[in-house]
Structures are given as structure tokens and as C-alpha cells.
């Protein structure tokens, strides 16, 4: 059974149809990349899967391990194993990154029937994970994302992902805003999580990321539909030729 199955998904925002019939299956252990022009619905797709309010699913299904995701609240989806690294992470004043991480981690552990981590274990865990991502440990004492640079926000998203160890990780342009070194470090973070029971949906505009996180499948999203699918070579072709031919075909 596919880990994530999207069947003929239609969704609209404020009465405007954005997703117009997306069908996609992610087998466990695979990495799928989605590329496509600005405004074609990549973030919309991520948000619909993660359960953000404000989207109307007018048709279709999303299944995680065969279970209907669309019937779950956002927090239930997360505890079921869905993780979205946001294109634009929000700043939350007053809430420290560490309090947030600990609450999220323990919510997940409780859902899995595990004991909560105590302050010491948490500290050790976060020290190791921040070090691996080249982040100063002190960053977790700061308010969540507040005043973080663009690249720091993206690293913080990946830090959350490595802590929560989701079954399905969606990375929405996690590479944008990262410098060359950070791109490598973050990619290593993602690669270290690759596992037979986990799948990734990587949204990007740049083929460069896919040199580090090598995808099994690449899809072109245009006008709310999957306009083409292929292997890694499709990303190389897009880099050279752009989206013109898919936009004409899909229109």
C-alpha cells in the first residue's frame, strides 16, 4: 500500500479552483519532487494535506496508510505522521522555541504510547540535532522564528522535522533562502531521515537541491494538475528549458 495516496484532488480557495484533479501515490521509502511555476498550487497542495483551514476540497481523497486524512484536524494529521516544512514559517512572539519543541515532541510521544521526555533528555536530544544542522543551540531559547533570518527559519523547520521524525515530510521550498553551505547541511539532515518506512514530497524551484536530495520521481505541477512525471532527468530538462511547454499543454 502507498504511504500517501492523493486521488483526483480538487481544491479551491475563496471560490477559486486551484487544484484541479491531482493524483499521486508515494510509496514508502521514496522521495518525490514537485516543480512548477509560481502560483500553480504547490503550497496549496501542501496546505490541504497538512489541514490548514480556508481551503475547500471539492472532490477527491487524501489517504495516509489508507486512512482518510481529510477527516482529521491538523493536529491529528501531525500525530499520524504528516509534517509540513513551511515555505513561510510564521513568527510567534513570546513562545520560546524550546517550549514549543518540547510540547510538540511530547504530544507525539504520548500519541505513540511512549513516555514523555524529561528536561535533561530533551536538552541532550536538541543539542545533538542543532549541532548536526549547524545551528547555535542558544537559538532555541529565542521566541519561535522571531527575528530569525530567512535561512535560519528554514533550518529551524528542518530541526523540527528531525525531532518529530514524521512518516511523510513535505518540504515546501525549504531550499529557498539557504546559502550554499546551508543547503548541503539541510540536505544531509533530510537524507539522514530517509528510511524504508518514510516518504518525502519535496517542492522546489531549483534542480540544485535535487543534486543533494536525489528524488525517485519528479512531477511538474502546472495549472493545478500534474502535467508531467519522470525521473531525476526531468528536473535537469526543466532547468534548461523552463515550463513553457507544460503551460501550453495544460492550458
Amino acid at each position: 500500500m502507498a504511504l500517501l495516496e492523493i486521488k483526483n484532488l480538487h481544491a479551491s480557495v475563496a471560490g477559486k479552483a486551484i487544484l484541479k484533479g491531482i493524483t499521486l501515490a508515494l510509496e514508502p521509502g521514496t522521495v518525490h519532487a514537485i516543480m512548477g511555476p509560481n502560483g500553480t498550487g504547490k503550497s496549496t497542495l501542501s496546505n490541504v494535506i497538512a489541514g490548514r483551514e480556508g481551503y475547500d476540497v471539492t472532490e477527491g481523497e487524501v489517504l495516509l496508510d489508507g486512512k482518510n486524512v481529510l477527516a482529521m484536524s491538523a493536529d491529528e494529521r501531525a500525530r499520524a505522521g504528516i509534517f509540513l516544512a513551511f515555505q513561510y514559517p510564521v513568527e510567534i512572539p513570546g513562545v520560546t522555541t524550546s517550549a514549543f519543541l518540547k510540547t510538540a515532541l511530547n504530544a507525539k510521544r504520548r500519541a505513540e504510547g511512549k513516555t514523555e521526555v524529561d528536561a535533561m533528555e530533551f536538552l541532550k536530544l536538541v543539542k545533538a540535532k542543532t549541532a548536526a544542522l549547524g545551528m547555535p543551540y542558544d537559538m532555541i531559547k529565542r521566541a519561535l522564528n522571531v527575528g530569525f533570518s530567512g535561512g535560519e527559519k528554514k533550518r529551524a523547520e528542518v530541526l523540527q522535522m528531525t525531532l518529530l521524525e514524521p512518516r511523510l515530510a513535505i518540504l515546501d521550498e525549504t531550499d529557498s533562502g539557504l546559502d550554499i553551505d546551508a543547503l548541503k547541511v539541510v540536505s544531509e539532515g533530510v537524507n539522514s531521515l530517509r528510511a524504508p518506512d518514510r516518504a518525502f514530497l519535496v517542492i522546489t524551484h531549483y534542480q540544485r537541491l535535487l543534486d543533494y536530495i536525489v528524488p525517485d520521481h519528479v512531477h511538474v505541477l502546472a495549472h493545478g494538475r500534474i502535467a508531467a512525471s519522470g525521473g531525476k532527468e526531468l528536473a535537469v530538462e526543466l532547468e534548461a528549458e523552463g515550463y513553457a511547454k507544460y503551460l501550453d499543454a495544460a492550458a
Binding site: G51, I92, P93, G94, V95, F100, T103, A107
Partner: peptide, 25 residues
């Protein structure tokens, strides 16, 4: 803000408490 916290598995009541605490903090 609420969605961000919930998207990390935090239930809505706990998420609200965290946000209120943050606001007053």
C-alpha cells in the same frame, strides 16, 4: 499561529494555552 502549532501535533487547547502564555510573557 494556531495552525502552526497544531501542524506540529499540538492539540488546539494546549496550542491556545501556549499562545496565551506567550502573549502575556
Amino acid at each position: 499561529h494556531l495552525f502552526y502549532l497544531m501542524s506540529r501535533g499540538i492539540d488546539p487547547a494546549t496550542a491556545r494555552s501556549l499562545l496565551v502564555e506567550g502573549f502575556l510573557t
